[in-house]
Simulated assay, not measured.
Amino acid sequence: MNYQAPLAKTVSPYLLWFMIHKSQTGVAVLDFQSRIAQGAEQDSWVSVLLTGLSMHLVVLLMFYVLKHANRGDLVSLHVQLFGRGLGTLLNGVFLLYLLLLVCYQLITYSQVIQALVFPDMGTWRIGLVFLLLFVYITSGGFRVITGTAFWFVLIPSLLIVTLFIPLQYADWRNFLPMFNHSLPEYAYSAAQSLPLYIGVELLLMYYPFIRNNDKAQKWAHIGVMHTYLLYFVFVVATFAYYNMGQLRHSVWPTLGMSKIIQFTFLDRFDYFYIFNWVFVITPPCCLILWSCTRILRFTTRMSGRVSLWATAAVVFVIVAVFHDMLAIDRLGAVVRYAGTSLLFGYIPLLAVCVFIANRFRKSVRDSEA
């Protein structure tokens, strides 16, 4: 079965490319190079590509389980497989994960602005401004969020051209010697690159709103490929610009490269780079808020508008509370661990449960016949 929302609420299948890609990009692009280099060092690009390729399998499993959901999303599948009680509990856990994910995105980006642009402005004030923007876009519905994701993929893509300026100072010997690391070191870099792909699981919520969703799988794979090729470009540019010693002491390597870019009409290009990152984090944050709203509407009797503002209020409280660096680092560790466990642990387990349930139903029908 393939459940689909009313036609007026759906979007064209090719837009799944932009939804998948945009949901996987966020603040992690600013500093992931330092983390992955702790394992395989200059060979970490291999781990990034291998991890990206593994995401195709995750997408296949998600399409498999969603095709067997009564209403085409994760919240209905939980109730369908595990009953109302346990299914509601699992939906609550997924809701908590989404809340922490959007809070981490918002807190981290607020920290970047606070550290480099407005040091005297509180994190909660910066977070409130962007949270109101996210609520405004999310209140327009899924089609508005999709249109935002489409344009917010195209606009930041223009920044890729600016990577050629730091490459004028590249030292390609930084990649030597190649392939001289052990398997555990590659595995460590791969584990550090897994959080880069967190966000693709949002497909579990908006799948019914993709028109002809049973034929849209190729666009999801294109979106995944777009993501890991983009990360590969960033890794190559970063490793060519920094040596390993410099990279270990760089907090935000991507922003560090942008600081050397200067134009006659724009002296601090890194400011432009920082604020352009609004286009990067807005679509995934809006998708997360929209998904939280759907979960609340499914499990409670709250209306869409009330559930959206309730979700925003909880997010704002968490953003205002987390101002200690140690607490923020722990929040990031929890989000990365939960997202990785969801993608490579829970989704395969869910696919196994769906397979067993289908075989059981088939055996029951055969026995009755």
Rank of each mutant, 00 (worst) to 15 (best):
L7A: 15
T293E: 12
L176E: 12
V364K: 15
L247P: 08
L99G: 02
G87E: 01
P184C: 04
D171H: 15
F269E: 10
P177Y: 06
V319C: 05
W219N: 07
S258K: 08
D120F: 15
W172M: 12
L15W: 07
H226I: 11
F322L: 08
C103D: 07
K22P: 06
M121V: 14
G141R: 00
L202E: 05
H323T: 14
F18Y: 10
S258T: 12
Y241N: 08
G122W: 01
F164V: 06
G92Y: 07
A240V: 00
Y206T: 01
G304F: 03
P283K: 05
F179Q: 01
T227D: 11
I356L: 13
C353K: 09
Y231L: 03
L7F: 13
R301G: 14
L296M: 10
K9D: 13
I260V: 09
Q4G: 13
L77K: 00
G339Y: 03
L86Q: 07
L342Q: 04
I261L: 04
Q111M: 14
T148L: 02
N91C: 11
I260M: 13
T264A: 14
L95M: 11
S182G: 13
L131H: 00
L90R: 04
A333C: 07
G83V: 04
S189D: 06
G223D: 00
L158E: 03
M244H: 06
G87M: 07
P13K: 09
S291Y: 08
D267G: 10
L90G: 02
A313F: 00
R359M: 12
G339L: 01
L230D: 09
D366Y: 14
S291C: 03
V144I: 14
V161L: 10
K215M: 13
T300C: 04
P283Q: 03
D120P: 09
L133F: 11
R365F: 12
A149H: 01
H56Q: 02
V314K: 08
G127Q: 03
A351H: 03
L100I: 11
L98N: 08
W309G: 07
N358K: 15
F63K: 02
I113W: 03
T10C: 13
F94H: 04
V251P: 04
W45M: 04
L131D: 00
K67Q: 15
F164L: 12
Y136C: 06
C286P: 03
R301T: 13
F272S: 07
F134C: 14
W17R: 11
P284E: 05
Q33M: 12
Y271I: 00
L163C: 00
V93L: 15
V224L: 00
F275G: 07
V354H: 01
S47D: 09
